[in-house]
Design a protein around this nucleic acid. Structure first.
Lengths: 223, 223
DNA sequence: ATGACCTGATACGTCGGAGGTCTTGAACGC
DNA sequence: GCGTTCAAGACCTCCGACGTATCAGGTCAT
């Protein structure tokens, strides 16, 4: 195994074992390199790799730190990976999202605060009746993000965030080519919100399912 | 932005845009470094980072290649990230798994082949009535992996693979401390398998939910 | 002619050192 | 007390050299 890979494993080990805790500062490059028995250049490769997936946070002029290791932060790296998938796997991502999103929406129905409900309402109101496709999709992302956040599960939240990215392009495309897509999306958002206000988890789940299934169905018929 | 980060973005761009396709070989380090306008050392940091998340495959003495970019391969990197999460977030991972696994099991009920069913049966038979905890957990992973694979959604499959890792430790712990956990797990596996043989998606979903919920419940009461 | 073996070219792996740039915090002057 | 300046510390980038693994092509014995 290459010395760099060993260094990655050793640093990972130090974090997993608790020798390094979130927020801790690592020894400076030259010292850490000496400790781990490799050159500064090779160590930097290891640090850079761990930095890409948000395990380490490198600040020039300051030092290298262990990140908070929050699920949100670590799963953020997921979206980077997801970006590489080609359109032919979008359907599979969408299928996974169709499983998670309704569940998250149902969870939110029993937990969401009045304040958040008002914020979601305001958000939909602000968008108006005939928004541009780009605005709609951006609002769509925010709307669902807000709901999922209220599910209270940060892993679920981050996962859906990562999965929603690649389907965004598809939805923009849809908005541009399918006439009633915009109006339909607006109606479904209102329905989901109404179900949340009623604290009706099953209704919320169903509307979320319908909402995503409509995108899925359209995409399947188009490809 | 640092030159290395630029290089990462540029390489990513080359892949996403299709200039580099899965399996393609990259120019040699010195050339690519010259093309991208940075030093070989800095480029190596970029390549190493992309290699960690399985975007690139570096072979000493040969060259650097773009991987297949299969969802399976890319989401494999997820398990690396998940390893860093501490025990206090295991419950959240388990909650997500409780959403995905039943859905995957239900999907498998209508797609799984007779051959696969026989393989799962043989697997359970081989384990016997009173397996060691380690064997049981290993078999548990294989059992669910086999079922999820039959769901036909490789993204779902890889995602569950990544999520199952961190809960493994918890399950071993449970097996060691909860008396009837082993017998219960064996019974539930048989029940899931029976539902799959009956092509009963709803029964399969329910048994899978019960199966995971039992782990979740125990863990919640313990923490 | 065929096969194993050897060898050179090629490309990645590792290293040490030299400047450069950015952040931080203390010393300084107002 | 407050803002400015400056120097130390840490990461950033680069260069050149050498080590090591892989592969292809040639050599030689069978």
């Amino acid at each position: 195994m290459a010395v760099t890979d060993e260094a990655i494993e050793k640093i990972k080990g130090m974090i997993v074992s608790g020798a390094l805790r979130p927020g801790d500062r690592l020894p400076k490059e030259s010292e850490l390199a000496a400790d781990l028995g490799l050159s500064r250049n090779s160590l930097r490769e290891a640090v850079r790799a761990l930095s890409l997936i948000r395990i380490l946070d490198v600040r020039q002029g300051d030092g290298t730190y262990v990140t908070s290791l929050d699920p949100q932060l670590l799963l953020e790296a997921l979206s980077f990976v997801v970006d590489f998938h080609r359109d032919d796997t979008v359907l599979e991502f969408l299928a996974v999202r169709r499983i998670l999103e309704p569940a998250a929406t149902a969870m939110a129905a029993v937990r969401i605060s009045e304040q958040q409900l008002d914020a979601l309402t305001a958000q939909l109101d602000k968008l108006g009746e005939a928004p541009s496709v780009e605005d709609l999709v951006a609002c769509d992302l925010e709307f669902h993000r807000g709901i999922v956040h209220s599910s209270g599960n940060s892993v679920l939240c981050s996962l859906l965030d990562g999965l929603s990215g690649p389907t965004t392009r598809a939805r923009i495309w849809r908005g541009l080519t399918q006439e009633d897509a915009v109006a339909r999306t607006l109606r479904e958002h209102r329905a989901i919100l109404a179900a949340l206000r009623d604290r009706d988890a099953e209704a919320a789940r169903s509307w979320a399912t319908v909402h995503i299934a409509s995108v899925e169905q359209w995409l399947r018929s188009t490809l």
